[in-house]
Design a protein around this nucleic acid. Structure first.
Lengths: 136, 136
DNA sequence: CGGGATCCGTCGGGATACTG
DNA sequence: CAGTATCCCGACGGATCCCG
């Protein structure tokens, strides 16, 4: 089976099934980490264990419910690990697993792209909107 | 400004603002390509120009409306270019721009991660669900 | 062929209140 | 402190029909 980048960089007549397979992979991927907060939580976690309230403070705009949900989903996927220490009040720490750390590295490429191209994207948007406004 | 990977790999007490900045970048990113179809369209495009109906055939499960919307959004972002040839019936071709090709390369890392870890993710999910079922 | 317009269901996600 | 439980809404996305 051809890896994804081959599909991306040399999509030809022949490998329709490969595209479909990539379809499935990307679908899974988007299902797991493509929601609004997952990437931010992964970024905020870094490689050191952090407590719930600390994460909530680091991630601007998130509320308890969404942080809990996101952490649960990531835990279910094996991307973060949850450790409870039975103190009083309870202490709960979250830390990236091996898979989580790998993912945070992989995310780097996308984020660097975003960082490099955000200005150009916004410029393109303004141009597009301007033209659209004139046509109407 | 520190790049994203530094935030990810060395998140410490000091760089809260950096996390917030990453917050914004990731937010933009998710807003642009984090929807259900963008990555699939980018993958299906590859580096060669393709017509609307061809794309629709390559991307399993998409309908005209969503393909149109996704292509418009990507065009607005400067990620794909739309070329119309005034033939009859009309011919419309889509092709990745320079930014789009860069992005498709960056996406590779994430997709490779997904490909490598999908089995482990699914195993983790089963384990998690099984445990959850026992506790109840 | 390559769309645009419209209707409509679902579901992600926010606000708020309560709990061990 | 670290959640769980409800309520609610707006946007995303699917189906269908129409058009140049």
């Amino acid at each position: 089976m051809d890896p994804w980048y081959k599909i991306v960089t040399m999509s030809s007549e022949a490998n329709l099934e490969s595209v479909l397979e990539a379809n499935g992979v990307a679908r899974q991927l988007i299902g797991h980490i493509g929601d609004k907060w997952s990437l931010l939580v992964i970024a905020a976690l870094g490689h050191e264990a952090q407590r719930f309230s600390r994460l909530k403070a680091r991630i601007e705009g998130i509320n308890q419910r969404m942080l809990t949900r996101t952490l649960r989903a990531l835990e279910r996927d094996g991307i973060v690990e949850r450790n409870v220490y039975p103190t009083s009040p309870p202490t709960v720490e979250y830390v990236l697993t091996r898979m989580g750390r790998d993912l945070s590295v992989a995310v780097t490429g996308i984020c660097e792209w975003a960082r490099r191209n955000l200005d150009e994207v916004e410029a393109s948007q303004r141009l597009f909107d301007e033209r659209a406004a004139r046509r109407i």
